[in-house]
Design a protein around this nucleic acid. Structure first.
Lengths: 165, 165
DNA sequence: TATTACAATGATATAATATAACATTACATA
DNA sequence: TATGTAATGTTATATTATATCATTGTAATA
């Protein structure tokens, strides 16, 4: 089940300024500084996710890529997505088998995701309390945490007020 | 990629007493009290997960079911797994597309999962700090949290000491 | 006990997600 | 230019999950 096609805007307040060019600029800088390459496909995938401003499945991304003349084969999307996830520019939302552009690139990592069961919107929220607690729980058992997936499903503020969808 | 077949024991200390009969007894009781039915397939799936004592993919469970004479069609496993997950007897580990019997049934819910990248073991740990923090983060944005997936990947204590796998 | 309604299962088909593998091309640098 | 590595093209396939509809079981009630 791919995520909804309806243009859900993240319901949480977030920095809209950073949604477009800023995210891309940041990506350019960060990738360059790390000695990596933001190739055309990779950049375009990030753009697609930023423009969509929602969680998208790999095959949805692939469709968009095809419109831009890229080959329409799964590895094209998955490779770019994997690269972007690996370097923190995109988050993978396991619960939805979907991907979303990171809206606080280079700043808040280990975010939490809030997924609305009603409107299917997804909000990324900085959640240092949560990730710190999780790291600490790991520490206590001698587990070295490298990555985290912190996701909640429920009902978003809009839908609770009957404004959803 | 289904989880490893090797018999990984959860690396975290946990209550081994509750691993076998206790979990099943608890399931019987809880399901009866809730006016539900722990049918043969459902009970067998829970047993399989408890015996395996590790995260298993739906198709791995299905194989085991087939050995016991149940039909070898995906819905057979998925229905039973969905039921068990819905009622808190089994946890779904999104990161692995896998399922694991709940080892603290009826007690600690909203656990966190620690997944070792080296030995592929999975440990369920009570993590009230983490889930409370996540709920609180939700509250602050007016989001009503209904379920959570809290997962960490990294290196487990055994593998850090070179004892893994 | 017959009726009825609903829950659960059987069974077939297919959808959706993801990766393997290998050939080819681009890029950086010796 | 030669060489090694990274990235992409391409084909095929693996893995995970669901839709659908027929059938059977279960429990409450007329």
């Amino acid at each position: 089940m791919p995520p909804a096609h309806n243009p859900v805007t993240a319901f949480a307040k977030h920095n809209h300024k950073s949604c477009r060019g800023d995210v891309l600029d940041n990506a350019d800088r960060m990738v360059r500084d790390a000695g990596l390459r933001l190739t055309p496909v990779r950049r375009r995938v990030l753009e697609i996710l930023v423009e969509g401003h929602r969680a998208m499945g790999a095959y949805q991304v692939l469709e968009r890529l095809a419109e831009d003349g890229f080959a329409k084969q799964p590895p094209v999307a998955y490779r770019a997505l994997d690269f972007l996830v690996e370097h923190g520019l995109v988050h993978r939302i396991r619960r939805l088998n979907a991907f979303a552009a990171c809206m606080q690139p280079g700043v808040a990592h280990a975010p939490a995701f809030f997924i609305c069961l009603h409107c299917e919107g997804v909000a990324e929220a900085p959640a240092f309390d949560v990730s710190d607690a999780l790291k600490k729980t790991g520490d206590e058992m001698g587990f070295r945490v490298e990555r985290m997936n912190i996701e909640a499903v429920g009902i978003c503020p809009n839908c609770l007020q009957g404004n959803g969808k």
